[in-house]
């Protein structure tokens, strides 16, 4: 049974492309040989090896849809990080990157599981939720989705244009931003951290049996998950993932 599951072997991927997302965030598009496929929401482990054999590992959510030919991870450069500055600044197209996955069977969604979906993201916590949105778009799924996305400023919104594009032609997808630190002139959206009132306005009613996915820094995840349960969400329907500044 469990003992016979295939080992997640380390594979050497090739960096196809590096896409700047914001001043601090890049997406790495990776060509992974013999990739077995993944479900939206899963992550990979990345392993870096120095010339003397020293190694460091970190986990990154997969941001691309299972339907895409390449794996994309989105990396936020942490100033005191060990791995993220290498991935964001040093790596070039054509370089190799060792990884294994996909990992994690809980924080995942497939179109056939239905909805409605409530997606709540803080900062780079958008990455696994983007995989779900891209997966949904690939299937032209009509599952209703509301994404509430908290960023520091408009310049810090990751995938901003793609989110606009996805929502523009899709009445079943609503993307709602809140900007917690700075707002551009004429900004009419939310301008504070996610709170009870905001979730009251955005979240599906519990009677609609929504599935909620919450990903971001721990304070956001703790607050939102607790508020959703207070609103009447079944705790088992609220799935969480953390993107804490815990290393990098």
């Amino acid at each position: 049974m469990v003992a016979t599951r295939p080992r997640l072997t380390w594979r050497v991927a090739t960096v196809r492309d590096i896409v700047p997302e914001t001043a601090r965030v890049v997406s790495l598009v990776l060509d992974v040989p013999d990739w077995q496929g993944h479900r939206a929401g899963q992550h990979i482990d990345v392993r870096l090896t120095a010339e003397d054999g020293y190694q460091a590992q970190r986990s990154y959510s997969i941001a691309s849809a299972p339907e895409e030919p390449w794996i994309t991870i989105t990396v936020e450069r942490l100033e005191d990080g060990e791995v993220s500055p290498y991935l964001a600044d040093e790596l070039r197209p054509g370089d190799f990157l060792e990884l294994r996955g996909p990992i994690g069977g809980w924080f995942t969604w497939e179109t056939r599981e239905g909805g409605p979906l409530l997606l709540v993201a803080g900062g780079s916590g958008i990455a696994p939720l983007m995989a779900m949105l891209r997966h949904r778009a690939a299937w032209r799924s009509p599952v209703p989705v509301r994404l509430l996305y908290s960023s520091r400023s408009a310049q810090d919104i990751i995938y901003r244009e793609e989110l606009e594009r996805l929502a523009a032609n899709d009445p079943d997808l609503a993307v709602i931003h809140t900007l917690t630190r700075a707002q551009p002139k004429g900004w009419t959206g939310y301008r504070r951290r996610i709170d009870r009132e905001m979730l009251n306005e955005i979240a599906w009613a519990p009677e609609e049996r929504p599935r909620a996915f919450v990903c971001g820094p721990t304070p956001l995840v703790e607050a939102v998950a607790t508020l959703l349960v207070d609103l009447g969400y079944d705790p088992a329907s609220v799935k969480t993932e953390r993107f804490g500044p815990t290393g990098g």
Partner: peptide, 19 residues
Amino acid sequence: PPGQYIVDGFPVLSAGPTP
């Protein structure tokens, strides 16, 4: 242990709301 790094804080991880 192999593949680990040291943190000073105490990260929180859980799959759902805090009971």
